[in-house]
Design a binder for these strands. Structure first.
Lengths: 354, 354
DNA sequence: TTCTACCGTACAATCGATTGTATCGAGTAC
DNA sequence: GTACTCGATACAATCGATTGTACGGTAGAA
């Protein structure tokens, strides 16, 4: 190893890498001690002479000093960064959660790093491990897939974690929507239009969110005094193809077909529209369709899809805040926040044909 | 500050944070020097006794030792991580590029961190700066928006950068598709179906990619001996709404309307279908539509959209590889790779009505 | 005039790991 | 028997920043 210990002359050969200015350079140039420079750079100027403060800061600027985050992180024992894990960036649900979390991070001077980790892939644990030492905590946005493996890996990491829009039996720290209410909102809307025959394309019933929406759907039916055949409920697995398959199953069921479809996610809703088109079923003429998750594409499907907008930004914000609390030593809780569910009416819903 | 310097007893009060095992703990427990432990943990066992090697590794495992990445990064001066900047995770184009880069990172033992930075937002520079010291290099996937600000901030960072599917006049390091060929592929396909009146919904003409696709479109027309009116070209700005507006403009143009639309991106294609539906124009009966960017949603629009699939995974891979080369000191280059453009025929295209 | 405060700044330990070089001891050759 | 070699491991500097405490000097009080 070449070690020109006291030769600060930048190597002229490697044009790319300019010598990095460090704190000791600033201190020397300003004629003060390293510790003085350190404090003044960080505005801990309480006891210092204004003159010194000014000089140090000026020199730092002139030299283009920027603190080395690795060194800082090592000394402080923290990274000032958190990670958000998502299973699938192709799913429409995550971006607004991400942005909410991003906002909070920015307010706190933290960096948000995103990592896509497919929970079904084999190397997820190594990817998780690679996050170690880079972040102080983890937000897990896994609403849409089975994820038993992930939680195991997370435990090993020993980092504070908050689950977002997804519960787990053993997880204390999680931020959830009132999914029962969200599902019920769709039924209420359809019933309000006059529908009495409402089928349900659910999210994956292996997931917490799927189960709770199913429960909300059922509760709403009972509240409205409705009963539907068992084969009007189908698991759409949180995917386009799953939604398609579920819709085919419902429409071809022995019980005849419903006048409306309550769908647990936008991607499944797109699948449902696709199936109905293939079956030559008019939407909303013969069957109305409504789905959870608002996104710009919903305005441009055929027909434009009526959706339920959830306040996912707020979800992301709240989750990030809880994570920061945990970093400060607070215990994790299971919090259910108001999703501020709002129907965005478009052309896929209408009163049933009489 | 509480400094129980030589009191390694973990505080029983803070149940959350278990005392972290460090290398010196392992060394002590194994009865060897820190340096020995360091080397053996990293399999630099060249000169060591097999017995010692075994003992150190066993102790490390027993104690659950995991190397502190911050300390390692500080010592080594590198992070073993790179970042990928995307402007908008809602755009369908990025996920496969991301995954390609992810693959290469994994092969090299690097971590890929994703960061969404809206190039039009005001705080982009602070977000960029927050990446400093966390990553060794940056992949910039900005194909779809103006980004003059970003490049400025990147320069200041002084990190090796590679631009992905996006050129810049002054950028040496970039990996690009042959966009002229991609655009031409759409025209060829439409002409092959018998169309002679082909309009163009282009990507934002303020972007490099937009300009090059426009050029390819024009070249293809000439090659086929076709000429079209000026108002059959409209800028769709890489967005759904832009694509809609551009389609309205073309369809309402004084020159009458074309029999086919060649659209530069899937999102704009969705906008185009939306506009055509609103205009009661039959697709593909009156107007065929084809767009660049394959994605599952294209199979489920109405009608399903014929698309051009580009090998974005390869793009991501190549870009990551170039970035690693740059980290090793290689100069950046401007590389154009084969996009392996492939038409995915669906129901939005058909021969023109005679 | 001498002692006490206090102000402004410097000293030095520390975070956890990496790595060039020194050292110790045993075996071998003469 | 002495010197030399080499194998196995220890020593110590270092990466760049943070922070508790010590220290020197000046001013006000006695």
């Amino acid at each position: 190893m070449s070690q020109p210990t006291n030769d600060p002359v930048p190597d002229p050969g490697s044009g790319t890498r300019r010598q990095r200015v460090k704190l000791s350079d600033v201190a020397r140039a300003a004629g003060v001690d390293l510790s003085t420079a350190s404090r003044l750079i960080r505005n801990q100027s309480a006891n210092y002479r204004p003159e010194t403060v000014e000089r140090v800061n000026r020199v730092a600027k002139e030299l283009g000093y920027r603190t080395n985050q690795q060194a800082r992180a090592l000394r402080l024992g923290r990274q000032q960064a958190i990670a958000m894990l998502v299973p699938d960036l192709d799913n429409f649900g995550f971006t607004r959660v991400l942005r909410g979390a991003q906002e909070v991070c920015e307010e706190r001077g933290f960096t948000l790093l995103i990592s896509e980790i497919d929970p079904s892939s084999s190397n997820q644990n190594s990817r998780l491990a690679s996050l170690e030492g880079r972040v102080d905590g983890i937000l897990v946005a896994y609403g849409s897939a089975s994820d038993t493996g992930i939680t195991g890996g997370l435990d090993q990491l020993g980092l504070p974690t908050v689950l977002v829009q997804r519960g787990a039996p053993d997880a204390t720290a999680s931020v959830l929507f009132d999914e029962e209410a969200n599902a019920a909102a769709m039924v209420d809307y359809l019933v309000g239009l006059g529908h009495r025959s409402v089928a349900h394309v659910s999210g994956a019933l292996s997931t917490d969110t799927g189960i709770r929406r199913e429960r909300g759907f059922n509760a709403a039916l009972i509240r409205h005094g409705l009963e539907i055949p068992a084969d009007w409920r189908a698991d759409g697995a949180w995917t386009i193809d799953g939604g398609r398959a579920a819709t085919f199953a419902i429409m071809n069921s022995a019980s005849g077909h419903p006048t409306a479809l309550s769908v647990d996610s936008l991607v499944e809703g797109i699948g449902a529209l696709s199936a109905l088109r293939e079956l030559n079923v008019a939407v909303p003429g013969e069957v109305s369709v409504i789905a959870i998750d608002e996104h710009l594409v919903a305005a441009h499907t055929s027909p434009p899809l009526t959706t339920v907008r959830l306040d996912q930004r707020a979800l992301g914000r709240r989750a990030a805040e809880m994570l920061f609390d945990r970093l400060d030593g607070a215990a994790g809780q299971r919090v259910i926040i108001d999703s501020a569910a709002e129907i965005v009416p478009r052309e896929s819903t209408a009163p049933p044909r009489t």
